[in-house]
Design a binder for these strands. Sequence first.
DNA 1: ATTAAAAACTGCATTATTTCATCTTTGAAT
DNA 2: ATTCAAAGATGAAATAATGCAGTTTTTAAT
Lengths: 233, 233
Amino acid sequence: MSQINHQRYYDCEDCLFKTISCQYIQKEEFEKLRSKSIQLKYKKGEVILKQGAKSTHFLFLRKGIIKFNYEDENGKNLILSINKAPALIGGANLVNAEFNLFSVCAIEDCEGCTIDVALLTRIALGNTLYLFKMLQFITDVFRSSIFNFISLAHKQVNGRIADILIFLSQNIYMNNDFVLSLSRQEFAEFAGCSKENVIHTLRKFHNEGLITLEGKKIILNDPERLQKISKHG
Amino acid sequence: MSQINHQRYYDCEDCLFKTISCQYIQKEEFEKLRSKSIQLKYKKGEVILKQGAKSTHFLFLRKGIIKFNYEDENGKNLILSINKAPALIGGANLVNAEFNLFSVCAIEDCEGCTIDVALLTRIALGNTLYLFKMLQFITDVFRSSIFNFISLAHKQVNGRIADILIFLSQNIYMNNDFVLSLSRQEFAEFAGCSKENVIHTLRKFHNEGLITLEGKKIILNDPERLQKISKHG
DNA sequence: ATTAAAAACTGCATTATTTCATCTTTGAAT
DNA sequence: ATTCAAAGATGAAATAATGCAGTTTTTAAT
């Protein structure tokens, strides 16, 4: 991710963050933000924000898919949430500014730009409607994780995996037919079970005709029946 | 909870919410908030905010212990978080105002007062430091639930129950020796397992000398060893 | 194209968890 | 004080999930 010369990969004119911001703040204000921001590219697998590190900036994710990852004291990983662009990442610390509770990693190639937290906060403090909009943006990222939480807490692995398949098709890939960005290990870290259990369960769904599985390619043949399994059928 | 005549149970002078508020806003502003607020008492078991209902007010919880409860489509309950006073409840909707995602129920007798959301928002919009403070207050309530999430997601029942015992002693009762406010069923809804599993596991911990169990009374005899079990030992 | 390493897969033994049937204790209501 | 209902407790059988060992497939590097 090292960009010595801060090259620009894309034009800021069509950026959603600019569009939204300029509904609330003056173009000159936005220009201050933009002048301090750096465009970055991340390859699949790269760490965008590191758990335990100090957040010096937000990242406006313009393109790509990311995971929120928590690593426990035994080195075991847990995926709390998966999100796709556009999203404002790193906002967990806007209110209670401290260290990153989680890592954020690219699970597909990503593009985005850094946003100076201190400057954004200063501007937002002078414009509460903008502040509210930014808070909404930030909390959006966490909204989906609540439902994964609920799924984990009181469903068995069948239901949890059905939930994840539905979630991915409806919220990430926007299609019943997609190429999974996660390894089986990562899928297991999202579902809160062993990778063998993921493999067995996906195979079972395949054998029952619920899904078609060809390596990383997954087709949901029967989303309604998956919904039933999710509802513990 | 019906208070036809809005009787006052306690004096507002020593209220933490007033103390904090008046560090940021004028006494006259606070008086507007206070004049619209109603003091309420809830008995153990009473619903304070109902899942699916519209939030017309926050509750500043002055005394007592509450649970955040989610009821799924099959009528199964799940406890997302347990919190004690003081806390500002119902703030999930400050930013994205819609319907309550969860119920909030008293698990010990509670006292608190309603706070008009629209008025608090209006005042906070005119005073961003106060707004930040309120947001901090609100997010505090959710902070602890993240760690329960993590515990649920990648620990077995032994570890989850150890985690809950430690959480309750350190964050709720502030003592190694406490009288549990939860039924075994509710404990199971917090731990994400069957009530029999809770009973078996608590009994096992008791037999191993880790805890002393006398009905609702629990003593943590060996918090260090519980920590080890939590860390999957 | 060949090789090595990583990821995916499989079946099975072990362990964990739920479910069920039954019994005991506790607490509230009459 | 008695009764009833709810909560707590227990053990055993059935089901679910993990962890292991070994095999195949995929991916990346030379």
